[in-house]
Design a protein around this nucleic acid. Sequence first.
DNA 1: GCATTTGTGAAACATCTGTGCTAAAAAAGA
DNA 2: TCTTTTTTAGCACAGATGTTTCACAAATGC
Lengths: 207, 207
Amino acid sequence: MPKIVDADHRRELVADALFHVIAERGLTQASLRNVAQTAGLALGSVRHYFDDQAELMEFAFRVNSERIHLRALEKLEALEAEELSARLDVLVERCTGVLAELLPLDEGRRADAVVHMEYMLDARTNAALSDAAQDDYRATGAVVGRVVLQLMNSPLMSKILVPVDEAERLIAILDGLSLRMVLQPAWSAPEHGLATLRRHLEDLLAP
Amino acid sequence: MPKIVDADHRRELVADALFHVIAERGLTQASLRNVAQTAGLALGSVRHYFDDQAELMEFAFRVNSERIHLRALEKLEALEAEELSARLDVLVERCTGVLAELLPLDEGRRADAVVHMEYMLDARTNAALSDAAQDDYRATGAVVGRVVLQLMNSPLMSKILVPVDEAERLIAILDGLSLRMVLQPAWSAPEHGLATLRRHLEDLLAP
DNA sequence: GCATTTGTGAAACATCTGTGCTAAAAAAGA
DNA sequence: TCTTTTTTAGCACAGATGTTTCACAAATGC
């Protein structure tokens, strides 16, 4: 029959172009024309794969959210699979490694984090994105919650902590660090943010 | 001579209209026409007080930033003036009160926080706002830093903490809580966020 | 080779945006 | 009342945006 192009692959290619535009010039410049141009496509081609601008926006949002959380989930499941370490510093390092996937520590994760922030803020007033935003909240809540459980279940944990409370504080720290590192990279270097995260986890486990 | 209108007062009135538009419909809808309409003015009138759109944006950003930090500074200076309390829970409560001014705990502060977030994110790609954003960073850094010093100087402080590190963690928590409360008010009620902040301060002072 | 289906490109339209320009209205002094 | 200056209102223009529509190209199955 007709010409065959991997449609799904093409949609992700357009989404990547959108990410690039948002990361470089902000969500306000993410017009269909700008996206098409950076994707090397014509405006008509982009609209062939996405009926709406809204459809492109939600699709890209979900790709971005999944990309971020899948990285963390991979490391998390590896952590849950291995037997509990008897050494405190090892446990801290493992948990730090999982949560660090949610921080903009390298250029790739930085672009993801920038796009993520812009999307979450936009979802506040953009009803078409609110469902995707809800799913995103649940995803990060699940990752952080499971990390907290790992800490709680460790025999090295001497304090009595309320899991929900610590998850909330940890989420706040992650969001806050991510925000600062995205907006103010000059003052918030990657190693700096990572160290703050590690220090907090050490505090939780400290006797 | 001519009709006399308090120009400064008029500029703040326009800024308030801009805040209203941003809080209700997001920064993308903050066009001069929308602002003029919600301010009850004609487009030409708005442009009479602000030559540029950029001038209005920066002016409103600074008004917003100062409004937030002045509230916290007032309480902070009251705290620094009074003699150190010998009771630990009193000190925590005082410091919580200062930092709580940076959180969206009521409708007024919520609108301020929303506008603040949108502006900070926009400043990332909007060179016209980067100076104002820098000033904002310094302002919150100063407030949080001075609160941390209050905690450190207390004879009730038993731990040995690095002030800069704790200030950074505290800023992250404040930013993260603020972000969550702005974006997800259904899951992050005001009392909830306030409790998390208080708990963190108690943790810092705990023996 | 041909027809059919899919992909591509471009032109056109209505809408919204910031900005420049002009003219009327309003108020205070002469 | 008349003049002067500020304030207000409105029009017009260029540019950008989402969307619609249509024509053309390309590739697969017959």
